[in-house]
């Protein structure tokens, strides 16, 4: 009655059978005899509360889906103490580095990643929706996870994060460096913020390490190939400290 997974370089034991999660074991499964770094073991009451909270906020999701998301929240809370946090973003890999597109839902971050894939065959998806950002030895990495959006685009990789592009819809195409202090609202909205204060403070510490090391851009774009070529050329070719 448990699933052993390898996520962000950690062995995770989930004490719960979830059909959606099980469907990702081809990429994320690992052998049962490994010693887990993290155990997700919640009682039914916790799960019911989580599902109730989920339903209050959003659509009436199928139980399996709510459970799948509740497992991720629990995992993300535990991962904070392993120097990881969740960022809402579409992350794509190019030449061994990861690039994250972030924006409120519906802006077109997945679309922008798809345009990179269409124009640059050397790219592949790390996580189309909810990557884990991992800090290790002062470097910032983006990780694939089984929670990766409706198209289920992800790879079980941990790659250095080369840039973060905030997607803005615009007829005029541009890619410009922005200062983290001017994007506080955006970044706070795009990360998972735990209710527990201590965990929230740790998350802010990790967020600050990311913002200090990884270049932040505003990408003004439409859905043209030109937009993707411009952002690709800027993000993958400018030097930065994290790579």
């Amino acid at each position: 009655m448990s699933t052993m997974l390898s996520i962000a370089g950690f062995v995770v034991k989930v004490q719960k059978d979830n059909i959606i999660l099980s469907s990702h074991t081809d990429k994320y499964g690992c052998k049962d005899d490994r010693e887990p770094d993290i155990v997700i073991d919640f009682d039914e009451k916790y799960l019911e509360d989580e599902i109730a909270a989920e339903r209050e906020q959003k659509l009436d999701l199928p139980t399996e889906q709510s459970e799948y998301l509740a497992i991720y929240r629990s995992l993300c809370e535990k991962l904070i103490k392993h120097d990881c946090f969740l960022m809402h973003a579409s992350v794509i890999a190019a030449n061994g580095s990861a690039y994250a597109f972030t924006a409120p839902s519906g802006t077109g971050k997945s679309t922008h990643a798809a345009l990179w894939r269409g124009n640059f065959p050397n790219t592949f998806m790390v996580n189309d929706d909810k990557p884990i950002i991992k800090i290790s030895d002062g470097k910032v990495y983006a990780c694939g996870t089984p929670w990766c959006g409706k198209h289920e685009l992800s790879s079980n990789v941990v790659l250095p994060l080369g840039g973060i592009g905030i997607i803005t819809r615009s007829k005029e195409l541009y890619v410009k460096r922005v200062a983290p202090k001017d994007e506080i609202a955006m970044m706070l909205n795009q990360i998972y913020r735990p209710k527990n204060s201590e965990l929230m403070f740790l998350t802010i510490d990790l967020l600050n390490i990311m913002l200090k090391n990884v270049p932040l851009y505003r990408i003004g774009c439409d859905i043209s190939d030109e937009a993707a070529i411009l952002s690709y050329n800027t993000l993958t070719k400018e030097g930065n400290n994290n790579l």
Partner: peptide
Amino acid sequence: GFVAKEIGGQEVIIAVGKAAEKFNGY
């Protein structure tokens, strides 16, 4: 629940814990 923190090099006040349910800005 209201605390000062540095985010992205800028000192800001944010809400944590219960206070964050009502105040999610900075």
